[in-house]
């Protein structure tokens, strides 16, 4: 831990950022993507939405991002949603190939009408945070998959948003890069105090990263259980190999398996 780390209060003492109240999402064909999801996101939370495909975890993220409207129920931001309140990282890096790394990170500011010169320092700072300060003038095609993802994370962080949504950001990366990025993500979170909702289908990733795991089930998509991971940050290799980690991973895995229909489990 460094001197710059933000102190995040324990789970039950955090101030709310956003709440979902009994949210339903039904698609045109009558498919229920999400049923009665309620969730209060608190400042400093690292929440994982964990479940098999079709459990509505990406739908939940799109609802929170405001890309869709709930069919029933409501999503409210504490004190309203400001323009810089949300950062998003998709499964693909989603960079503009015609712009350099720095110009890509500039995008959220650019859309607020801020010139590059006025936010240059902030862009350099956030690029240094993800370890890409030397690549500011590179084009995305010159970077590896993991580095592109870091640019995407830097872009999500640059406005200091109240909430960062991550939709299986490391799913397409190899295991080694993925572990490295998981470690770095926790360091970033410790230093920025960011609130994160992280969608994943990996039990181990969710237990390693988050302090709250929402286990979801499919058909219809719903939350079946919340598991608290009460291990202190920073977490590293010691946490990954601890008995507590193994126990919670086992518990989470069992919960996940219980949601699958008999024919689907192995």
């Amino acid at each position: 831990m460094t001197a710059h780390d933000r102190i995040i209060p324990p789970l039950h003492q955090r101030k709310p950022v956003l709440s979902m109240q009994a949210v339903d999402k039904t698609f045109n064909g009558g498919v229920v993507a999400l049923r009665r999801m309620s969730l209060t996101v608190n400042e400093g939370d690292f929440i994982s939405l964990l479940g098999p495909s079709g459990c509505g975890k990406s739908t939940a993220l799109r609802l929170i991002a405001g890309l869709m409207r709930p069919t029933v129920g409501r999503i409210t931001w504490e004190g309203g949603r400001g323009t810089d309140d949300l950062g998003v990282v998709f499964q693909e890096p989603t960079l503009m190939p015609w712009s350099t790394v720095a110009k890509n990170v500039w995008l959220p500011f650019r859309l607020r009408g801020k010139s590059f010169a006025t936010v240059r320092d902030r862009i350099e700072e956030v690029l240094a945070l993800v370890g890409l300060d030397k690549f500011a003038n590179s084009y995305p095609r010159e970077l590896s998959g993991g580095m592109k993802m870091r640019v995407s994370i830097a872009r999500a962080l640059v406005t200091n948003p109240r909430l960062i949504l991550m939709d299986e950001p490391f799913a397409a990366l190899d295991e080694i890069t993925r572990q490295k990025l998981n470690d770095d993500l926790l360091n970033l979170k410790a230093r920025t105090g960011a609130t994160v909702i992280f969608v994943t289908h990996s039990v181990f990733e969710s237990v390693f990263l988050s302090d709250r795991i929402l286990v979801m089930a499919a058909r219809p998509g719903r939350v079946i259980r919340e598991i608290a991971v009460d291990a202190p940050y920073p977490r590293g290799i010691a946490w990954r190999t601890s008995p507590d980690y193994a126990r919670i991973a086992r518990e989470t895995s069992d919960t996940l398996m219980s949601t699958l229909a008999p024919g689907e489990s192995h």
Partner: peptide, 11 residues
């Protein structure tokens, strides 16, 4: 996805 990003940042 970039289109979604534009929506999220209210472009």
């Amino acid at each position: 996805n970039l289109r979604d990003l534009m929506l999220i940042y209210k472009a």
